[in-house]
Design a binder for these strands. Structure first.
Length: 400
DNA sequence: CGGCTTTGACCAGCGC
DNA sequence: GCGCTGGTCAAAGCCG
């Protein structure tokens, strides 16, 4: 084999061995291109406007500006309430809805199907040349107001700018013209408030550029005030895809990297494509369709019956792409959750209205990520975090 | 040679 | 109005 469209075993092995550059994101052990975002149902106009969306809590979380680990942020906050609400039919935990929110557009992040998955598996994409070590994506950090219209506008602006550049390039000496272009650049920038439409993740990683399955080109780097670490700007290299990514290492906690995504990919992750080609998925397009079908299902169905969907299944591979709705999950994230989330054994959930136990051993393969996972403060039960915030064993995430 | 990173310069929003 | 800052551009250089 070895053609450009197929990964041979050797290639896979080679990539995996490359500096151990594997990011084992807990929710997507099977398909690296899967994203936590993929469990997010797209919001139709109706849902978008509906404050009763069962995903409101999660939406709220993602809409939180630069949300770092707070007592309100559990890993579960990442999942739609519809899906994870164990056995109760109560409304979404108030706690989630009470997260400090930037005023607007709670649903926007959903709307745009946030750009990029949390780092999932690294090796295939990323233009980073840095030595890879196990990365530890975990902590949801932010989501700001997000307007699809704004993104579209921004794309238009970008096109206009490029058009201007092109015309000018045709008419002038290149060198002179370049300066002119720069000086006369009619860049209609969005206000910071407008452009602050990011979803951010705080991850514990030795590597600055976490590989998330997409290909990125670095287009800028700026020193960060009060930080010895610069901020890097990346753009998705896929033509027509305007997703941007911003990376910076925390000055306060140098072991943490803050990754922000802005925009919406207009394409599949190269890894997913490859997975499809390898037969993990029938084909990308049908997968895509089913993905959206599933999202819509999640978005429209009522809550209670969903949880059965996530009963623990030891054999994750056999259950891949098979769920109680007989439709393909959004990438494999739901499947992943499906495989490792165990509704039972919620003893010790104290007064919380519901809880989920996640058997880490079921979702972490060999040298997985979870041992390095940053423990949300709420984590309770058997799987306590160690002194460095890492988790081992079973962890119960509390809801509500 | 193409793709990517580096880096200095520039633009525009924001706060004072 | 001015300075600061975040974000972007694009030439130059690097690398496989």
């Amino acid at each position: 084999m070895g053609n450009s469209s197929t990964l041979t075993d050797d290639e896979i092995q080679k990539k995996q061995n490359k500096g151990n550059c594997i990011i084992n994101f807990p929710f997507s052990p099977a398909l690296p291109s899967c994203s936590i975002f993929d469990i997010i149902p797209p919001q139709s106009d109706d849902h978008q406007k509906s404050s009763s969306s069962s995903f409101a809590g999660y939406i709220d979380l993602l809409s939180t500006n630069d949300f770092t680990v707070t007592s309100s942020s559990t890993l579960l906050d990442w999942f739609p309430n519809t899906v994870f609400d164990a056995d109760d039919t109560s409304p979404p935990p108030a706690q989630i809805n009470q997260l400090p929110l930037p005023s607007p557009a709670v649903s926007d992040v959903f709307n745009t199907n946030p750009a990029t998955p949390i780092s999932v598996s690294s090796s295939i994409s990323s233009s980073s040349n840095e030595v890879c070590v196990a990365n530890k994506p975990i902590v949801p950090v932010a989501g700001n107001e997000h307007e699809l219209e704004l993104l579209e506008e921004e794309a238009k602006d970008k096109d206009e700018d490029r058009a201007i550049t092109h015309v000018e390039n045709q008419n002038q000496d290149r060198t002179i013209q370049t300066k002119k272009l720069v000086k006369g650049r009619k860049k209609k920038k969005k206000s910071r408030k407008e452009r602050a439409t990011r979803v951010s993740f705080k991850t514990k990683s030795d590597v600055d550029h976490l590989d998330d399955g997409y290909r990125w080109r670095k287009y800028g780097q700026k020193p960060v005030k009060n930080s010895p670490y610069p901020r890097s700007y990346y753009r998705c290299t896929t033509a027509g895809c305007g997703v941007k990514k911003r990376l910076e290492r925390s000055a306060m906690e140098p072991s943490f990297v803050l990754t922000s995504y802005e925009g919406q990919h207009t394409h599949f992750s190269p890894i997913l494509t490859r997975a499809a080609e390898l037969g993990f998925v029938t084909n990308a397009s049908s997968f895509h369709d089913k993905n959206y079908q599933h999202r819509n299902t999640l978005a429209t169905q009522s809550q209670p019956q969903h949880f059965q969907h996530f009963h623990h299944q030891p054999d994750s591979s056999s259950s891949l792409f098979n769920n109680s709705y007989n439709i393909a999950p959004p990438f494999n994230v739901v499947n992943s959750a499906h495989n490792f989330i165990n509704q039972e054994n919620c003893a010790g959930s104290s007064s919380h209205s519901s809880c989920l136990r996640i058997n880490l051993r079921d979702l972490v393969s060999d040298d997985g990520l979870l041992q390095d996972m940053i423990a949300p403060k709420e984590i309770a039960g058997a799987g306590a975090a160690d002194g460095e915030g890492r988790i081992d064993g079973d962890v119960t995430f509390m809801l509500g």
